[in-house]
Design a protein around this nucleic acid. Sequence first.
DNA 1: GCCGGTATTGTTATGTTATATCATTCGACC
DNA 2: GGTCGAATGATATAACATAACAATACCGGC
Lengths: 141, 141
Amino acid sequence: MATLLCNERGVKLTAARRQVLELLWESGCPTGAYELIETLQQRNARPVNPPTVYRALEFLITQGFVHKLESRNAYVVCIHPDRRHACIFFICADCGVSAELEDERVADLIDEDANDRLGFHVTGRVVEVQGTCRQCTPAEP
Amino acid sequence: MATLLCNERGVKLTAARRQVLELLWESGCPTGAYELIETLQQRNARPVNPPTVYRALEFLITQGFVHKLESRNAYVVCIHPDRRHACIFFICADCGVSAELEDERVADLIDEDANDRLGFHVTGRVVEVQGTCRQCTPAEP
DNA sequence: GCCGGTATTGTTATGTTATATCATTCGACC
DNA sequence: GGTCGAATGATATAACATAACAATACCGGC
């Protein structure tokens, strides 16, 4: 999947990059860079230094395969890397999982505010929601 | 203003806390914690250690006088600390200023998505917009 | 095949942001 | 004045991220 997209785009999904992406898939949760470093370390026997992972992350983010959760300093795979999108992250404070949702209406409102009220030129949006997911929220009585 | 609110609430705006708040007002921009430390240091002659400033920030955030911009690791005064509100930050990548805007509609959409699509219980929202402000955006031809 | 240029990775060091921990001081109240 | 809890001081260290330069891999043309 990511391999295909990379081929189309003429960029390379090298071993290091693929490994980081795989780790994030396996984890299923937002994961810190240093946790990735440690895991990679264990799998590779060779030392893995921070720049290795940060460079891979940078690449994966640029290509849209991974998002950074700013409020967590953590990284998570994107569920639809094939197209640009305006997404919202719902992050469970309890179990740590994050859900990614697309909602153009939110992006549109933000852009509307930016244009009409501020004359602000939007280049990117960070929308992260804290709370508890369905599993971690006790049912209403 | 902040003093009054603190009295009402039965909490104390101590010297350290007031100083940090003042610095943020004077700065007018999102400001990093270590920049605050340095400035405080200069004004106080005595050494100012990180926990001092981080504790003050924590207090000010809890009281709603200050917001943290997660995408910047910076802190900025709140423009209406007297009431709870759902706000959006527009952060200029060029000059660094941030504008705070209230828009219930965005919060409502987010909550709607959370409830209807995910069964997610929202406790907080981070909405930060990157881009360039009116002053820093070249006029359209 | 080989050469040369570009992209990628390795390595070391360091910068930046944030917190844990425990000792000390301050301030309100009895 | 003594006591208790809140706040601060001080030291150390954790957690997150990047700069800089050397070494290597990859890919085109020859």
